[in-house]
Simulated scan of single mutants.
Amino acid sequence: MQNIYKILSLLLDYPNEDVKENLSGIKAVVEEESVLDKTQCDLLSQFLGPIQSITLSDWQMLYVQQFDFSSSTNLYLFDHVYGDSRERGQAMVDLTEMYNKAGFMPCSDELPDYLPLFLEYLSLLQNEEESLKLLKEVSHILENMHKALQKKETPYSYLLELLCSLCNEDKYDIKQKKGIEV
Rank of each mutant, 00 (worst) to 15 (best):
V35N: 06
V35G: 03
L36K: 06
L36Q: 13
K38V: 12
K38A: 10
K38N: 08
Q40G: 00
Q40H: 14
C41D: 15
L43K: 14
L44A: 04
S45C: 15
S45Y: 10
Q46V: 00
Q46H: 14
Q46C: 13
Q46W: 11
Q46A: 07
F47K: 14
G49E: 14
G49R: 10
P50D: 08
P50M: 01
Q52C: 00
S53C: 05
S53G: 00
I54L: 03
I54G: 00
T55P: 02
L56Q: 08
L56V: 07
L56C: 03
S57N: 12
D58H: 02
W59F: 04
W59L: 07
M61E: 13
Y63L: 14
Y63G: 02
V64P: 01
V64T: 14
Q66V: 07
Q66T: 09
D68Q: 10
F69T: 08
F69V: 09
S70N: 13
S70G: 04
S70C: 02
S72Q: 06
T73G: 05
N74M: 14
L75D: 12
Y76M: 05
Y76L: 04
L77S: 01
D79L: 08
D79K: 10
D79F: 11
D79C: 08
H80E: 08
Y82W: 03
Y82N: 01
G83L: 09
G83N: 06
D84L: 11
R86M: 05
R86A: 07
R86P: 04
R88L: 05
G89E: 07
G89P: 03
G89N: 05
A91I: 03
M92H: 13
M92L: 15
L95K: 02
L95T: 07
T96P: 09
T96R: 12
T96A: 12
T96D: 01
M98Q: 04
M98E: 05
Y99S: 05
N100A: 06
N100E: 04
K101F: 06
K101G: 01
K101Y: 05
A102T: 15
G103L: 15
P106Y: 11
C107Q: 09
S108G: 10
S108W: 15
D109L: 15
D109C: 12
D109Q: 15
L111W: 13
P112K: 02
D113C: 09
Y114I: 14
L115K: 02
L115E: 03
L115M: 04
L115N: 01
P116R: 08
P116Q: 09
P116T: 09
F118V: 05
L119M: 12
